[in-house]
Amino acid sequence: MPGRLNGKVALITGAGSGIGLEASFLFAKEGCKVVCADINEQAGQATATKINADIGANSAAFVRVDVGKEADIAAAVAFAEKTFGKLHIVFNNAGIMHPADDNAETTEEKIWDLTMQINVKGVWWGCKHAIPALRRAGGGSIINTASFVAVRGAATPQLAYTTSKGAVLAMTRELAVIHARENIRFNALCPGPIRTPLLMDFLNTEEKKQRRLVHVPMGRFGEAIEQANAALFLASDESSFCTGTDFMVDGGLSAAYVTPEGPTKTVSPQKNFSGV
């Protein structure tokens, strides 16, 4: 039975861990050839190697990419086309959340600039260099990872990160309008608080964790596989009439402001069906 991405080729940044790792396996299981891009060579190569071992030879390839460098992104797009012939899907997923990011008075300029370089310019460059490739393929889907903080703000100060994700959301909408008639779709995946190393390193105290969880109606952190499932929908032809959306996958956080007196029942996370 054909997979949901059968015959497609995808480039996924941040493929060495978290959402990117789960998405890489899930896309490959659905028949997609996956270019696993990551700045961490060991982690990114491990993802590609395991996909090829578990799903089938030549299902994935690794390319080292620092999304803070335009040349790396341009090279990754060229690598995808050279390796697998075409490029149909780009998941601009890689990003940073600096542990020293704080409010407007205390966030250092170097942290601000680094966050914008990776989270905003990195996504822009990912779109810029993907558009001609998708055009050559006859169209496709570009998914940019934003965040629920792009529309709600964060309970714990992280000004540079929040600002960068708001920029990603606005950029995605603009590009969706510009390229809508070219069969190139742009959507922003907006995760809620997810149990990934990136967020857990930032929420490095129990107090910080509870300040996030208290506002999530489901009462738990999300799992990376749940975001990967959402990305799969946006990548597939099932979402063919979806473009310019802020796809909220946030446990209900953006639906209502839940206070400490709100829902408190603990909910077990979804079983992880990934290949990792």
Rank of each mutant, 00 (worst) to 15 (best):
R4Y: 05
L11E: 12
L11W: 05
L11I: 05
I12W: 08
I19V: 15
S24I: 10
A28S: 12
N40Y: 07
E41W: 10
G44V: 04
A48P: 01
A53F: 08
G56S: 08
F62V: 02
F62T: 02
V65S: 06
V67T: 09
I73L: 14
A75G: 10
A75Y: 03
A75P: 02
A76N: 08
F79A: 07
E81A: 11
G85C: 08
V90I: 11
V90E: 02
H98M: 00
T106E: 04
T107H: 01
E108N: 01
E108Y: 00
D113Y: 01
T115V: 08
K121F: 10
V123G: 01
V123T: 10
W124L: 13
W124K: 04
C127R: 00
K128V: 14
I131N: 07
A133R: 05
A154S: 15
G166W: 06
V177S: 09
I178K: 11
E182Q: 11
I184G: 01
F186N: 04
G192I: 11
I194H: 01
I194C: 11
R195T: 13
R195P: 03
R195D: 13
D201A: 05
F202H: 07
T205V: 03
T205D: 00
H215C: 13
F221N: 08
Q227L: 15
N229V: 14
N229L: 15
L232N: 01
L232S: 02
S236K: 05
D237Q: 12
S240D: 15
F241W: 12
F241H: 10
D246Y: 12
F247T: 11
G251I: 06
V258Y: 08
T259Q: 13
P260I: 10
G262T: 02
V267M: 12
K271A: 14
K271C: 13
G275C: 14
G275L: 15
V276D: 11
